[in-house]
Amino acid sequence: MVKEVPLSTEYTYYAIIRSGWTADRPFAVAREWHSDGLPWAETYTRDLRWEATSVLTAIRAGRSDDDAEPIAEDVVERFIARMKRSVELKEQGE
Protein backbone atom coordinates (compact mmCIF):
# COMPACT_ATOMS: atom_id res chain seq x y z
CA MET A 1 0.00 0.00 0.00
CA VAL A 2 1.34 3.43 -0.91
CA LYS A 3 0.70 5.97 1.83
CA GLU A 4 0.73 9.69 1.07
CA VAL A 5 2.76 11.35 3.78
CA PRO A 6 1.50 14.81 4.78
CA LEU A 7 4.16 17.52 4.56
CA SER A 8 3.62 18.37 8.22
CA THR A 9 4.46 14.83 9.35
CA GLU A 10 6.73 14.50 12.36
CA TYR A 11 8.97 11.47 12.11
CA THR A 12 10.71 9.44 14.74
CA TYR A 13 13.96 8.14 13.30
CA TYR A 14 15.64 4.86 14.27
CA ALA A 15 19.05 3.33 13.75
CA ILE A 16 18.75 -0.33 12.77
CA ILE A 17 21.69 -1.96 14.48
CA ARG A 18 23.29 -5.33 13.75
CA SER A 19 26.40 -6.83 15.25
CA GLY A 20 29.35 -4.57 14.48
CA TRP A 21 27.18 -1.50 13.81
CA THR A 22 26.32 1.40 16.14
CA ALA A 23 23.59 4.00 16.53
CA ASP A 24 26.04 6.61 15.17
CA ARG A 25 26.90 4.39 12.19
CA PRO A 26 23.86 2.15 11.69
CA PHE A 27 23.34 -0.78 9.36
CA ALA A 28 20.12 0.91 8.20
CA VAL A 29 17.79 3.73 9.18
CA ALA A 30 14.03 3.75 9.55
CA ARG A 31 11.45 6.41 10.18
CA GLU A 32 8.03 6.08 11.76
CA TRP A 33 5.00 8.31 11.95
CA HIS A 34 1.31 7.99 12.77
CA SER A 35 -1.57 8.74 10.43
CA ASP A 36 -5.23 8.14 11.20
CA GLY A 37 -4.12 6.53 14.46
CA LEU A 38 -1.99 3.90 12.70
CA PRO A 39 1.81 3.61 12.70
CA TRP A 40 3.66 3.72 9.37
CA ALA A 41 7.33 2.94 8.85
CA GLU A 42 9.86 3.19 6.07
CA THR A 43 13.55 2.43 5.63
CA TYR A 44 15.98 4.25 3.37
CA THR A 45 17.07 1.83 0.66
CA ARG A 46 19.88 1.34 -1.86
CA ASP A 47 17.41 2.68 -4.41
CA LEU A 48 18.01 6.01 -2.62
CA ARG A 49 14.45 6.44 -1.46
CA TRP A 50 12.24 5.73 1.52
CA GLU A 51 10.24 2.50 1.16
CA ALA A 52 7.65 0.82 3.38
CA THR A 53 9.06 -1.64 5.90
CA SER A 54 8.02 -3.97 8.68
CA VAL A 55 11.47 -4.00 10.31
CA LEU A 56 10.39 -2.02 13.40
CA THR A 57 7.40 -4.31 13.91
CA ALA A 58 9.63 -7.38 13.58
CA ILE A 59 12.17 -6.00 16.07
CA ARG A 60 9.47 -5.09 18.59
CA ALA A 61 7.87 -8.53 18.25
CA GLY A 62 11.21 -10.28 18.79
CA ARG A 63 11.25 -11.69 15.25
CA SER A 64 14.55 -10.03 14.39
CA ASP A 65 18.06 -10.16 15.81
CA ASP A 66 18.47 -6.47 14.93
CA ASP A 67 17.95 -3.65 17.40
CA ALA A 68 16.35 -0.25 16.85
CA GLU A 69 17.39 2.88 18.72
CA PRO A 70 15.90 6.36 18.32
CA ILE A 71 18.33 8.75 16.62
CA ALA A 72 18.52 12.40 15.62
CA GLU A 73 17.84 13.56 12.08
CA ASP A 74 21.51 14.45 11.54
CA VAL A 75 22.45 10.77 11.91
CA VAL A 76 19.91 9.96 9.20
CA GLU A 77 21.32 12.68 6.94
CA ARG A 78 24.85 11.25 7.35
CA PHE A 79 23.56 7.73 6.61
CA ILE A 80 21.82 8.93 3.43
CA ALA A 81 24.97 10.76 2.31
CA ARG A 82 27.04 7.58 2.89
CA MET A 83 24.47 5.50 0.99
CA LYS A 84 24.55 7.92 -1.96
CA ARG A 85 28.36 7.81 -2.05
CA SER A 86 28.31 4.01 -1.91
CA VAL A 87 25.87 3.78 -4.82
CA GLU A 88 27.86 6.32 -6.85
CA LEU A 89 31.10 4.39 -6.31
CA LYS A 90 29.45 1.14 -7.28
CA GLU A 91 28.06 2.69 -10.47
CA GLN A 92 31.49 4.10 -11.36
CA GLY A 93 33.03 0.64 -10.93
CA GLU A 94 30.60 -1.02 -13.36
Results as ranks from 00 to 15, higher is better:
residue 39 P to G: 02
residue 17 I to Q: 01
residue 19 S to L: 04
residue 14 Y to E: 11
residue 36 D to H: 12
residue 31 R to N: 11
residue 28 A to P: 02
residue 24 D to G: 12
residue 24 D to V: 08
residue 18 R to H: 10
residue 45 T to A: 03
residue 39 P to L: 06
residue 9 T to F: 12
residue 31 R to K: 10
residue 27 F to P: 00
residue 55 V to N: 08
residue 31 R to D: 14
residue 36 D to Q: 13
residue 26 P to R: 09
residue 28 A to Q: 06
residue 18 R to V: 02
residue 44 Y to L: 05
residue 36 D to I: 06
residue 10 E to V: 06
residue 27 F to N: 10
residue 55 V to L: 10
residue 13 Y to H: 07
residue 34 H to T: 14
residue 36 D to W: 04
residue 53 T to C: 11
residue 13 Y to V: 04
residue 22 T to Y: 00
residue 55 V to C: 05
residue 52 A to M: 14
residue 32 E to A: 03
residue 28 A to E: 02
residue 47 D to H: 15
residue 44 Y to W: 15
residue 24 D to R: 12
residue 49 R to C: 15
residue 53 T to Q: 08
residue 42 E to G: 04
residue 26 P to K: 12
residue 11 Y to L: 02
residue 51 E to N: 11
residue 23 A to P: 03
residue 20 G to N: 12
residue 18 R to W: 00
residue 30 A to G: 05
residue 48 L to V: 08
residue 39 P to Q: 10
residue 44 Y to N: 04
residue 21 W to R: 14
residue 10 E to T: 01
residue 43 T to M: 06
residue 25 R to L: 12
residue 52 A to S: 15
residue 53 T to L: 05
residue 30 A to K: 03
residue 20 G to M: 13
residue 9 T to G: 11
residue 11 Y to F: 10
residue 35 S to Y: 12
residue 38 L to A: 14
residue 46 R to M: 07
residue 23 A to W: 03
residue 13 Y to I: 06
residue 55 V to P: 02
residue 45 T to S: 15
residue 41 A to P: 03
residue 11 Y to P: 00
residue 44 Y to G: 06
residue 16 I to G: 01
residue 18 R to M: 09
residue 24 D to T: 12
residue 53 T to V: 06
residue 19 S to D: 14
residue 38 L to P: 04
residue 43 T to C: 09
residue 54 S to W: 10
residue 46 R to V: 07
residue 53 T to N: 09
residue 23 A to T: 05
residue 46 R to S: 11
residue 39 P to D: 09
residue 32 E to G: 00
residue 30 A to T: 05
residue 43 T to D: 07
residue 22 T to Q: 02
residue 48 L to S: 10
residue 55 V to T: 12
residue 43 T to A: 06
residue 32 E to P: 00
residue 53 T to K: 08
residue 30 A to S: 14
residue 14 Y to A: 01
residue 29 V to I: 08
residue 29 V to A: 05
residue 16 I to D: 00
residue 17 I to D: 00
residue 34 H to S: 13
residue 12 T to M: 09
residue 25 R to D: 08
residue 54 S to N: 14
residue 45 T to M: 06
residue 34 H to R: 14
residue 15 A to I: 00
residue 14 Y to M: 04
residue 13 Y to M: 09
residue 17 I to T: 01
residue 34 H to D: 11
residue 36 D to Y: 10
residue 14 Y to G: 01
residue 49 R to H: 08
residue 23 A to C: 05
residue 43 T to R: 09
residue 39 P to A: 05
residue 52 A to D: 13
residue 55 V to Q: 09
residue 46 R to N: 15
residue 16 I to S: 01
residue 39 P to Y: 03
residue 32 E to V: 03
residue 15 A to F: 01
residue 15 A to V: 02
residue 39 P to H: 03
residue 21 W to V: 07
residue 9 T to M: 07
